[in-house]
Design a protein around this nucleic acid. Structure first.
Lengths: 147, 147
DNA sequence: GATGGGGCTTCCCACCGTTGGAAGGTCAAG
DNA sequence: CTTGACCTTCCAACGGTGGGAAGCCCCATC
């Protein structure tokens, strides 16, 4: 199976499949004599797994952990649950931070006449507001996975 | 005033100040004979404005628009309001998408025993789930601002 | 057998915002 | 004069994804 077929079957673009291979998230694909990558149904299955995890917002490094658990038939579901719960927590924090922005902005917007006069509490706030929260950023990067 | 002072006073890092200048979000700073950038209180004021806007999640392109309105003494508050409202909408969509992930994941986590056995509904779902939503992506990039 | 078209290969570049570092010039205090 | 803190420019990286060029491969059709 060529990379294009695997892409269609898994929902992961050919570009991303090559990228995942490059960073070591997935093992190097077999090659045909022509040099073309050759994918099995099992490979596609794995790609679908990855796609699902990405759709749920897992970062590549987290997916790497999940893939490890997935392949490990003697895993403990507690480990999977822990990874998922941690991710939920990250998502909730992101949501809270975004929601905070929305609340602040909505207050400002509600105070703004929104007419043809120049006076605007939104701009006024932007001018005057003191040092903000400068939201802690996540970091936790992956440089190169396994291998 | 050196860039370091301006950074401290505005809450925008020196690195970012140079970057904002480079992409044209802010005009090139005056230079002293030494070649050092020289900032006025007005410059710092503008940087604080930018910082506030970034803290509220505005993208650089949006800040560019806001800065234009800020400088325009004959602006109409309706224009500002429109930009802010549009941004709120973006934020809400992002939140909704994140919340959707949380909901799905929470259901899965709730179903997971989280013990020492390998059976895990989370992994099972990742294996089986059909084609997901593949969330529409925002795009709308800034290549180079003004000038 | 030749030609064409579509898929595959690798490679580099872009996005966005931010941080880090290297190599060198400047400034102020000791 | 030396030291150290600051400034300058340039280059690279991070996450993940898409775009495109140059060249090879495979298959079908003439």
């Amino acid at each position: 199976m060529n990379i294009g077929q695997a892409a269609k079957a898994s929902g992961v673009s050919a570009k991303m499949i090559r990228y995942y291979e490059q960073i070591g998230l997935i093992p190097p694909a077999d090659r045909k004599d022509s040099g073309y990558r050759d994918y099995s149904d099992a490979d596609v299955h794995m790609l679908r797994f990855i796609r699902r995890a990405r759709d749920l917002g897992f970062a590549v490094a987290e997916i790497n952990a999940l893939l490890g658990l997935w392949r490990d038939r003697s895993r403990q579901s507690a480990d999977v649950k822990r990874v998922a719960a941690a991710h939920i927590e990250e998502l909730r924090e992101k949501i809270a931070s975004l929601q905070q922005m929305v609340d602040t902005l909505q207050d400002l917007v509600d105070c703004c006449a929104g007419d043809n006069r120049p006076d605007c509490p939104i701009l006024a706030n932007f001018e005057e507001a003191q040092d903000g929260p400068q939201a802690a950023h996540p970091s936790a990067g992956l440089k190169r996975l396994s291998r």
